[in-house]
Design a protein around this nucleic acid. Structure first.
Lengths: 336, 336
DNA sequence: CTGAAAGCGCTAACAT
DNA sequence: ATGTTAGCGCTTTCAG
């Protein structure tokens, strides 16, 4: 591996001239620059990042922490971030917090210690002082999908609330008056925003708000759905706050031989492969996942270049309601 | 950030004693060790990796390159690798090659330059001299999913061929004699192994081998499937070499109102969410994705610890044939 | 505009 | 068993 002084020797100049050319730090005579560039080219010099970091510079690496790298939503996001970063000359150090705040904290500390240039996080919890710490040590932090509460940082989020209202209103538009909202009982920002959006839409239409929570504390989906369907008046439509839950609900309907959308209409958050394969196809809210990642990376990269710490931005991305059959749209008149 | 000499000062010993305690390089008196550990604890010292790297050591980072981080197969694998590496004290620098050999090459170079401890690769192409280069510079390389041709390296692969034979034989067992193999026309190791496995099974049973290739050079799935179905004798069963293709094929059958498995039976490679949601549910070959990642990471981590360069290993993982309805199993007698 | 020297934090090699 | 010195490749500082 050729070093900077190797270049200097070959070019017949001092090491600092080489350093200045490489970094564009200061004016160098055209003649010197030419010689240096030629020498670099000739011996194939690439700056040693470890030495730069030792001198206090930051690595050309972005840190990314998501709850689970195997989750399609996060994976798609991570891929988009990697691509954007790569095009700007950065690699991405990715980590999964496994939905655990303590793991996220330790990973953050290590990344800070490794002098990453900036961090992108989909935070697992609400206690985010480790990110504050990172910011204090001069690392730009951008949060995605969920805003950071106790900390001023750029955030890119999706308008979960408006999207859920729109989806709910669509069901109302189909004439439904008893619409159940099926959600997980986890306290996750995106999920509670979705329940909120549903509730607001129902209240605006003077319809009864009925939320059925599923989870370790609230019982199984099968049980809860059973109660709801046997209640009076029984819901004629259902809004599900995520794809995993939607898939489970569909299995349940299949098991109970309940016909969608005739007996019960359904709209789900998150688009998923199976949504266009099952009969009926499922109407969903599609999130701009790739854009979420790309924008987050762009914002972060922007911060790295601007020295001036401009005001933090909160970007809210809009969703798309993909109308298919499960909501009652589409004239599926063929008998089967 | 406290440094090694800070620790030395606090502990009242020389820097080397501290270094020795931290790295366990050599014997240190119990007394010294105690003092050093206390000092480290007190001022919260953590070794500076940049300085270590500058001295020629390797980073506590594994490099991972897969064709596409958003692909569920690769993402699951990446997640498993990250977890295994994390438990061993390593972070993972992940990159997507976007199925391009030149990108993979550049990413490899950068990772080598960053002094990663080892590399895990699902190679995008067959020209793998960049990985050879990495090996030469002392970095352990492990390939996954696809073996490396012109290079001696540990490899963890799935027995695509045997799995495909077994799937095909299952269809034969159902009495099918005309079985079509539907595959992509890309020249990817795993995919051609699957076609091979199908072909071998057919030949062993003295049945005609019929492979229908789909892709930019070979025409659309819709067209090719159309030809095949209109041929004489028409296939009564179909073996699909991956989930994406299976999903497309199912859409096509749905469009043409062809009933699975009555008119045509189907078995697919790769398990996928929708496989249990559609009617009928789809029989698939399930790959041990998580194990693939975990084993690959373990093998790599093993190499980092053993100084002795033992013989390269090739681990072949077995698959599971998940019997569902699309192959003709399961007595779906209820009329619908 | 350019160069020489000092030192970032660490460890290999040499002293003690 | 322990301490001292030199230097990894780079940039900051200070002279020229």
């Amino acid at each position: 591996m050729p070093t900077l002084s190797d270049v200097a020797k070959v070019a017949g100049v001092g090491v600092m001239s080489v350093s200045r050319v490489v970094n564009g730090t200061r004016k160098v005579s055209a003649e010197t620059e030419r010689k240096v560039r030629a020498a670099i080219e000739r011996i194939g010099y690439e700056p040693n990042e470890a030495a730069r970091i030792l001198k206090g510079q930051r690595a050309h690496i972005l840190g990314l922490i998501v709850p689970d790298l195997a989750d399609p939503f996060f994976a798609t996001c991570a891929n988009a971030i990697h691509e954007t970063a790569w095009n700007a000359g950065y690699l991405t150090l990715m980590a999964a917090s496994f939905h655990r705040e303590d793991v996220e904290r330790r990973e953050t500390e290590i990344m800070v210690h490794k002098q990453v240039a900036g961090m992108l996080v989909i935070p697992a919890g609400s206690q985010n002082d480790h990110l504050l710490e990172a910011q204090r040590s001069g690392i730009a932090v951008v949060s995605m999908d969920r805003p950071l509460e106790n900390l001023e940082a750029d955030a890119i989020v999706v308008d979960n609330c408006a999207a859920s209202s729109r989806a709910t209103e669509h069901l109302i538009g189909h004439g439904h008056r008893h619409i159940l909202c099926l959600a997980n009982d986890e306290k996750i920002f995106t999920k509670s925003e979705r329940v909120k959006g549903y509730s607001q839409a129902m209240r605006r239409a003077n319809l009864p708000v009925r939320v059925s929570l599923v989870g370790p504390m609230s019982g199984t989906l099968s049980d809860n759905l059973g109660f709801a369907l046997n209640s009076n008046p029984a819901p004629t439509a259902i809004f599900v706050t995520d794809d995993v839950l939607a898939v489970e609900a569909l299995r349940e309907f299949k098991k109970r031989s309940i016909k969608v959308p005739d007996q019960i209409a359904l709209v789900s958050f998150d688009d998923f492969d199976a949504a266009t394969l099952v009969i009926p196809t499922i109407t969903v809210v599609r999130q701009p996942v790739v854009e979420l990642g790309k924008r987050a990376a762009s914002v972060l990269l922007g911060r790295l270049n601007d020295a001036g710490p401009s005001k933090v931005s909160q970007i809210v991305l809009q969703t798309e309601l993909i109308l298919r059959e499960s909501c009652g749209c589409g004239h599926k008149k063929r008998k089967r």
